[in-house]
């Protein structure tokens, strides 16, 4: 088994300058009834994207024709709340490959990394620059280079580096899957179990 590989990406970005975007907004609970991992992108940000009559809300960035691309840029504490991995699935299924924020909720970050969706944490200052670049030109392009751990605003040349755990970086670059790894060390786990008292 494998996860989608992530190496390098050059694309435009969609701005969502809202803080504390919780996973109930990303995908409301009433859409969690599926028993397969399919089609969650249709309901990404459902209650922000559509009004009560299911009409798209024009002012919401995902409905704003000026914005497109594979990077979602959000204000701090993105992905807080429920642990539902459906949130990461919905963002990926919609077509995003990267989420940029000044910080992520812990569970969301793990869920994203386990699905080939790269969460990039930048400083508040750099985040403002990213928002400003999109505001100045919605067609502004960005480059994400995972090997070198850099995010570049191509229109201004401004660049920042980002942190990523070395193990997860290898997983993303190569499409490795944690479950395969854990199953491969079964003898070590069994040795632990033989001396561990639950």
């Amino acid at each position: 088994m494998s996860i989608p590989k992530f190496i390098k990406l050059t694309t435009t970005a969609v701005p969502l300058p809202i803080e504390n975007v919780d996973t109930d907004q990303i995908i409301p609970a009433r859409f969690l009834k599926a028993v397969e991992r399919k089609g969650f992108g249709d309901n990404l940000f459902r209650d922000w994207r559509y009004d009560e009559q299911n009409v798209p809300v024009g002012s919401f960035p995902l409905n704003d024709s000026r914005f497109s691309g594979e990077i979602l840029v959000a204000a701090k504490n993105f992905g807080c709340g429920s642990s539902r991995e459906h949130a990461a699935w919905a963002i990926f299924d919609y077509g995003f490959r990267v989420v940029v924020s000044s910080f992520f909720a812990d569970i969301f970050k793990n869920n994203a990394l386990n699905n080939g969706l790269l969460p990039i944490q930048v400083s508040e200052e750099f985040l403002r620059k990213v928002f400003a670049a999109i505001e100045a030109d919605p067609a502004a392009r960005f480059e994400v280079d995972l090997q070198n751990q850099t995010l570049t605003i191509l229109s201004t040349g401004e660049q920042t580096s980002f942190e990523i755990d070395g193990y997860k970086k290898e997983c993303l670059l190569n499409g490795y899957d944690d479950v395969d790894y854990l199953m491969s060390i079964r003898p070590e786990i069994e040795a632990y179990e033989s001396v561990h008292r639950a």
Binding site: R84, E85, N111, N114, D165, D178, V179, M183, E193
Partner: peptide, 22 residues
């Protein structure tokens, strides 16, 4: 602590999980 579905699968398959220490 709460985990995502990929991690549920890890625990199913191995009774272990890969986690950074908080």
């Amino acid at each position: 602590f709460g985990i995502g579905t990929s991690e549920v699968e890890m625990v199913f398959a191995s009774q272990c999980i890969l986690q950074p220490k908080p």
